[in-house]
Design a protein around this nucleic acid. Structure first.
Lengths: 181, 181
DNA sequence: CTATAATTTCAGAAGTTACCGAAAGGAATA
DNA sequence: TATTCCTTTCGGTAACTTCTGAAATTATAG
């Protein structure tokens, strides 16, 4: 009987998941730990993570905490065992919602606030400007507003998708398909 | 007459745009240059970028080329002028499509291929495994498949959104809203 | 073809991020 | 309370990314 390739697949996925995250501004190790816990059939403790991914205790601790903060994994306690175990959210749809919500809060919200501020700064100038300066501010207002509207629309869409959930997306996609042609 | 706050707004936006990009794995300078060109009312040359953002010639050149590769800005030539000028895409919807297409190609496609490979690795084991190993592979197949399906659904959705374009999104959102309740 | 202007490349420098491992801190047990 | 086991913190370091400035390359005009 040929060797089962299970472990190879697991390793392959974990590495790729880490690489992908790295290019999205998330640390490779944090993402590898997430992949490990996502695949695990039971909660793992810090030492399991250290052993399986060959990372230090400090790194494991820090990254596990960050994952908990993101809401992607949860702490689990067992009776008669001091150790803390960690268990990942396994519903892909829920994962998506969690990640989307966090990134929106951390990274989209600031740009939205900045855009609003930029627009009101321009409004303060009112119609007092003339000539090129006037043309420039008008152009800028439009460009700020365009992005702001886009953000609003995307926020709305993600809210709807979250509400719809996994079961709801397929019919939605189908409907959009009809609308678009 | 109080000083126009136009320049302040411009600077504020450029800085924030750069910060946001940094947390999404895109270099700060590249994103600041993009913001500068997005706001500009006419194409700018390398020296304009160097001067306004205080970056070196090398950095300006490299980052401008990357932006061209992404398809977010375009080279513009003027008659009787050797200099190259750069002009940004200003349609936010088009920008979104461009970025989405590139990131999909660069970062989503690899994970999709990996997932397919992981799944076929597991299939190779067929039903030969028993006991815990069998349970594990079954669990993993499901988890790989879940993500793969999710990617497929998201790809589809983004395709539809691109097709729909700016004008089409609002009605779509409205329709989804009705579907979801 | 030569001179000039502009762009790209590259080696080294600077800055940033993430990791390690040991020490400190905290909680459960006896 | 002392002991043990586990978790978190943190200074130093290694690895990586990005920038700079100048040299090399390319393109244009005369």
């Amino acid at each position: 009987m040929p060797e089962a390739r299970f472990d190879a697949a697991k390793g392959l996925f974990i590495r790729r998941w880490g690489e992908m995250a790295a290019s999205w501004g998330i640390s490779r190790t944090m993402s590898e730990i997430h992949a490990l816990l996502y695949l695990a059939t039971q909660p793992l403790c810090t030492d399991d993570v250290m052993e399986q991914l060959a990372v230090s205790r400090g790194s494991a601790s820090t990254n596990l905490r960050q994952l908990v903060n993101w809401g992607l994994i949860h702490r689990v306690h067992h009776r008669n065992d001091r150790k803390e175990y960690f268990d990942a959210e396994r519903d892909v749809w829920q994962m998506f919602e969690t990640i989307t919500r966090e990134r929106r809060r951390r990274e989209v919200q600031p740009i939205v606030e900045t855009l609003q501020r930029c627009i009101s700064m321009i409004e303060e100038d009112g119609g007092r400007l003339t000539g090129q300066a006037r043309k420039d501010t008008d152009a800028h207002r439009k460009r700020f507003t365009d992005i702001l509207e886009f953000c609003g629309l995307m926020n709305m869409l993600f809210d709807l998708m979250s509400k719809a959930g996994r079961s709801g997306l397929k019919p939605i996609a189908k409907t959009i398909g009809k609308l678009v042609g």
